[in-house]
Computed example of a mutant assay.
Amino acid sequence: MFANRIKIACLALAMMLAGCSSPNSQWTQPPMAVPFQPTIQQQIQLARIDQLLKRDDLDNQTLAQVYYERGLLHDSLGLRDLARLDFNQSLSLKPDQPDVFNILGVYFTQSAHFDAAYEAFDSTLELNVRHPFAQRNRGIALYYGGRYALAFDDLNAHYQQHINDPYRVIWLYLVELEQDPEMAQEKLRNRFEASDKQDWGWQIVRYYLNDITEGEFLRQIAVESEDNDMLAERLTEAYFYMGKLYHYNKDYPAALMLYKLTLAGNVYEFVEHRFATLELSRLMNEANQSLPAPEQAPEPVVEGEANN
């Protein structure tokens, strides 16, 4: 009963704040969810794995799997440095793991080590050409690395495999936006019309197409989210893609706020949360470059030169 009351209170607050937010207010009162916290199940699982790793009768293949599973658990808790250590340990014991190369590629992308990311995703696809995420993740890495033509090839192929996935459409649009903004908008409309529009993520596409206002978009999230978990997940996605749009339009203060809100829900496993920190770094670099160069003080006149 108490938990249900908490959920209802959170949703009511989110609805109230959604009505208050607007571009003019710069989200001083944005809708938010209670941030994800480590669950008792995750903590128990982590303790069990730690106990299992103390055994000395495990072969390398079993150890590799255990390190991989602990890495995933650390990753889900936002402990990415510990997760990276586990994934590397797993790979040293069993080098032919496409899933490990894939997640390491994502980590390399997050830290802007793009060449290492490309190699990791290439290794994933060499080991499993049908890997469900490696081609998308490589396309995203290529996008962040500024290789838009190659990014388009990967993300377009990924989109063709499932045209009713709105997130494939969104990432493809973000790449095309860097190449030809007018054509990107037209293609986004065409892909939207060709879809079944069933997934919630199509509301993000509608927002990008200006079919719904920003207030309607956020209010819909608040009203339709069934519990705090759904609210946190949808706001993580919404704030990230809103931030991308403001970032593209060089509204740096708004984009900065939205990327920070993306991180606020602690939805560590979502792509949007993973890349929000990278976006913040890129944004700060762009903002600094856009500042006017400081005026140089006039050189002092040396006594005696004024009369020359």
Rank of each mutant, 00 (worst) to 15 (best):
V301A: 12
A276D: 01
L82V: 01
Q289S: 14
R70I: 13
K244C: 08
Q97V: 05
M32P: 08
D81P: 09
T277I: 11
V175Q: 02
K187F: 07
I204A: 03
D75P: 11
R70W: 11
D122A: 12
N285R: 13
F114E: 05
Q179I: 15
K250R: 15
P166A: 05
R136S: 10
Y67P: 10
G146L: 07
K244E: 15
V175M: 06
P30D: 12
Q26N: 14
T236F: 07
G145H: 02
K197F: 13
I163Q: 15
H113L: 08
F275N: 02
N210A: 10
L174S: 13
Y259M: 03
L188Q: 01
D96M: 04
Y268K: 04
L235F: 05
T124K: 05
D81N: 14
P181H: 07
K250V: 11
N266F: 00
L218T: 03
S290W: 01
A194M: 05
N266T: 04
L142P: 00
V34I: 15
E269G: 03
Y259K: 06
T124R: 06
A120Y: 02
A14S: 13
G139W: 12
L188T: 04
D211M: 15
M15C: 12
E69A: 14
A276V: 02
P298D: 13
Q45T: 13
V106I: 15
S90C: 11
R138T: 10
R168M: 10
Y246P: 02
K197Q: 15
L245G: 06
E272L: 09
T28M: 09
K260G: 01
F2G: 03
F36H: 14
F217E: 07
I40P: 00
F133I: 06
A276C: 04
K244A: 08
R136G: 05
Y143M: 13
P132F: 05
Q42H: 11
V100W: 08
E178T: 03
C20S: 08
D196R: 07
P35R: 13
I49N: 08
G243S: 06
D153S: 12
V205P: 09
H247I: 00
Y252V: 13
F217V: 03
I221Q: 01
F87M: 11
L127N: 12
Q203Y: 08
K250T: 12
R191E: 04
I204K: 04
D196T: 04
G265P: 00
H131T: 11
P95L: 01
A12D: 12
K54C: 09
Y248H: 13
R136E: 09
L93T: 06
Q61V: 05
A18R: 10
D86W: 08
D211T: 12
L155D: 03
A276Q: 01
L263E: 14
F108V: 02
D50M: 05
P132V: 06
Y246A: 15
